[in-house]
Simulated assay, not measured.
Amino acid sequence: MPKISVIVPVYNVENYIEKCIESILSQTYTDFELLLINDGSSDKSGSICDAYVNKDERIRVFHKKNEGVSIARNLGIKRSLGEWICFVDSDDWVENLYLEKFVENKELDEDTMVSQGIMYDFISSSDENFPFFIYPDKICAEEEFADLFTKYNLLHNGCPVSKLYNKNLLVKKSIYFNPSISTHEDHLFVLTYLLYCKKIILSSSIPYHYMIRNELSLSTKYHTSEELIEVSRLLIEKIIQCKSKYHFSQDCFNRAISAFGLRQLLVAARNSHQNNYHDVFADLRDRKELFLNHFVAKNLTNSLFLVLLFNNVPDCFLYRLIRLQRNLKKLL
């Protein structure tokens, strides 16, 4: 029984998967298994994974039809044998201390999460790499979480990678990725796990390299208004639950609810179309109190739109403004 199960969802990454696998096999900590979940790749990714099975007995490969990253990760959780679970994305790579830094602290109880920093690694760009989410070496009990969330923006770190989760807690509390949404499903997973934590261990290590390429990223993909409204509802619900349990500062709550709940509604409005904009605007008006009491506006455009929305400007006029804004962005 390995101590750690490393789960890697794989989909059409033939140019990157070998570097990812090699980086995991090069770990200084060796008591792990590597689960490669091939999510119906149409390129050579699946055969590359199969070739590695013969090179290292710690590797297991699962081939399935393409159903998305959430179902692939969930399959990895269910098939894992380790006491602890971590994730690596198949087009990223990790330094050789990635796993060791997770377990070097001996205070790993079932209701614990360990979180390390992440390095943003730019490809084909003049931008320099920079660390994303930097933490000190710190062990925090539940009564310290409020200060922790405020000081280190933990609610904003929705990346499932560079964290260690307890397998038994995941299964016992049925914590899995939501396959019905394709954005922020990872953030919902992390927030749900946090609701059951009694200890958080932070590490100053930054061994995870999150690769930023010129290709279309998930964050720029189009999502329907209906999906974004559902995502907003789920995120707001989780953040309110975290606030109720851990009693962190109002400023921390406002920033989190704005960034990961209310802004999804604004994107939903921007993505609305002729047949659904009335319903979308109605959903925003239903959240009026949250907007008025907690929204932290980042630009004048959003502020102006909300003023018009909440002052009963006709929907048809608001929709024309949104279309004009979209057209101007295309021109620019």
Results as ranks from 00 to 15, higher is better:
residue 117 G to Y: 03
residue 165 Y to W: 10
residue 192 T to C: 04
residue 103 V to Q: 00
residue 117 G to R: 02
residue 192 T to A: 08
residue 146 A to F: 05
residue 110 E to Y: 11
residue 131 P to Y: 04
residue 128 E to Y: 11
residue 176 Y to I: 08
residue 186 D to E: 03
residue 95 E to M: 13
residue 84 W to Q: 05
residue 131 P to K: 09
residue 85 I to D: 00
residue 137 D to C: 11
residue 143 E to P: 08
residue 128 E to M: 10
residue 158 G to I: 03
residue 152 Y to C: 02
residue 116 Q to A: 06
residue 159 C to I: 14
residue 121 D to I: 12
residue 181 I to E: 04
residue 91 D to A: 09
residue 159 C to E: 14
residue 175 I to T: 06
residue 105 N to D: 15
residue 172 K to A: 13
residue 186 D to N: 05
residue 130 F to G: 10
residue 80 S to I: 01
residue 172 K to V: 07
residue 194 L to S: 06
residue 97 L to R: 12
residue 110 E to A: 13
residue 178 N to G: 08
residue 99 L to I: 05
residue 179 P to Y: 07
residue 111 D to Y: 14
residue 107 E to Y: 12
residue 144 E to V: 06
residue 98 Y to V: 00
residue 161 V to T: 15
residue 155 L to N: 03
residue 84 W to Y: 15
residue 195 L to Q: 08
residue 125 S to M: 09
residue 140 C to R: 12
residue 164 L to C: 06
residue 176 Y to S: 10
residue 169 L to R: 11
residue 169 L to E: 09
residue 88 V to N: 01
residue 116 Q to V: 02
residue 193 Y to N: 08
residue 116 Q to D: 04
residue 139 I to P: 00
residue 195 L to G: 05
residue 162 S to R: 01
residue 155 L to M: 09
residue 112 T to R: 07
residue 160 P to C: 14
residue 121 D to M: 11
residue 177 F to L: 12
residue 124 S to P: 07
residue 177 F to M: 10
residue 146 A to K: 14
residue 123 I to S: 11
residue 171 V to A: 13
residue 87 F to L: 06
residue 163 K to C: 03
residue 122 F to N: 01
residue 191 L to A: 04
residue 170 L to D: 02
residue 108 L to H: 03
residue 124 S to A: 13
residue 127 D to W: 12
residue 149 F to H: 00
residue 117 G to P: 01
residue 99 L to W: 01
residue 185 E to W: 10
residue 111 D to Q: 11
residue 130 F to M: 13
residue 105 N to K: 15
residue 161 V to H: 11
residue 156 H to Y: 13
residue 121 D to H: 14
residue 150 T to C: 12
residue 151 K to I: 06
residue 190 V to T: 05
residue 89 D to N: 13
residue 163 K to Y: 02
residue 146 A to C: 08
residue 122 F to S: 03
residue 120 Y to C: 13
residue 83 E to W: 02
residue 130 F to V: 14
residue 90 S to Y: 03
residue 155 L to W: 01
residue 96 N to G: 10
residue 168 N to E: 15
residue 185 E to V: 11
residue 119 M to L: 15
residue 115 S to R: 13
residue 162 S to P: 01
residue 133 F to H: 04
residue 126 S to V: 12
residue 142 E to Y: 02
residue 188 L to W: 05
residue 150 T to V: 11
residue 178 N to C: 11
residue 144 E to L: 06
residue 159 C to H: 13
residue 191 L to V: 03
residue 182 S to W: 12
